[in-house]
C-alpha cells in the first residue's frame, strides 16, 4: 500500500515538475509586471503561487481554467505580500524610490515601470491582464474575482495614470494599447 501511494505521489510530482519546467518563465514574466519590474518580488510571487499549486495539485488539475487560477494566485500573492507590513524590515517612505531593483532598461521602459509601481495592486493587475495578456474584460474580471464594471473602471483609471506619468516623463511616449478587446 505504501509503495502504491508513493508511486502515485511520484507520478504527481513528475507532472508538477513538467508543469513548472514549462510554465515557470511565463509566470515569472507576468509576475515581473505585477511587481512593477521588481525581480526579487516577482520571484517571491511565483514561488508562493507554485507552492499553492503543489499543495492543491489534484484540484488544480481539475480546474476548468488553469490560466485564470494561476493569474488569480499571482495577484493574491501580490496583495498578500504588500499587506505583510514591515516583514522585510522596510522603512515606509513618502514617495517611491526612483530606481527599482531591476536590470537596465530604456527610458520609456523605466518610466512605465515607475508608473506601474504607483498603481494599486488590483489596478496594476487589471492593466497588465488587459494590455499584456490581451484578456478581455470578462476574463480579467474572472481572474481578479470582481465585476466587469470594476475591471473597466480600474483599467481606465490605470491607463489614465500611466498616461499622466508618461506624458510627464516623456511627452512623446504613447500609451495606446494594443491587443486588448472589450
Amino acid at each position: 500500500m505504501r509503495l502504491q501511494r508513493g508511486s502515485v505521489r511520484s507520478e504527481q510530482e513528475d507532472d508538477f515538475r513538467d508543469f513548472v519546467a514549462g510554465r515557470r518563465l511565463g509566470l515569472l514574466r507576468t509576475a515581473a509586471l505585477l511587481a512593477a519590474g521588481d525581480t526579487h518580488l516577482a520571484e517571491d510571487l511565483v514561488q508562493a503561487t507554485l507552492i499553492k499549486v503543489y499543495a492543491n495539485w489534484a484540484t488544480f488539475q481539475k480546474v476548468g481554467n488553469p490560466e485564470s487560477y494561476l493569474r488569480r494566485a499571482l495577484v493574491n500573492a501580490l496583495i498578500d505580500e504588500r499587506r505583510r507590513v514591515w516583514r522585510r524590515r522596510e522603512q515606509p517612505v513618502a514617495e517611491l524610490p526612483d530606481q527599482a531593483a531591476t536590470t537596465a532598461s530604456s527610458p520609456g521602459g523605466e518610466a512605465v515601470r515607475r508608473a506601474l509601481r504607483e498603481l494599486p495592486p488590483r489596478m496594476r493587475a487589471a492593466v497588465v491582464f488587459r494590455y499584456f495578456h490581451g484578456l478581455d474584460v470578462a476574463e480579467t474580471a474572472h481572474a481578479l474575482e470582481c465585476s466587469e464594471g470594476t475591471v473597466k473602471s480600474q483599467t481606465a483609471r490605470g491607463l489614465e495614470r500611466l498616461r499622466a506619468v508618461l506624458d510627464q516623463q516623456q511627452p512623446t511616449l504613447s500609451v495606446q494599447p494594443q491587443g486588448a478587446t472589450s
Binding site: 518563465l25 514574466r29 520609456g108 504613447s174
Partner: peptide, 20 residues
C-alpha cells in the same frame, strides 16, 4: 518601441536574466 505593450514586454523580459 513606442507603445505600452512593448514596454510591458521589456519589463517582462527583464526577469529572464535572473530566472531560475
Amino acid at each position: 518601441m513606442n507603445d505600452l505593450r512593448e514596454y510591458f514586454d521589456e519589463i517582462a523580459d527583464s526577469v529572464t536574466s535572473t530566472a531560475t
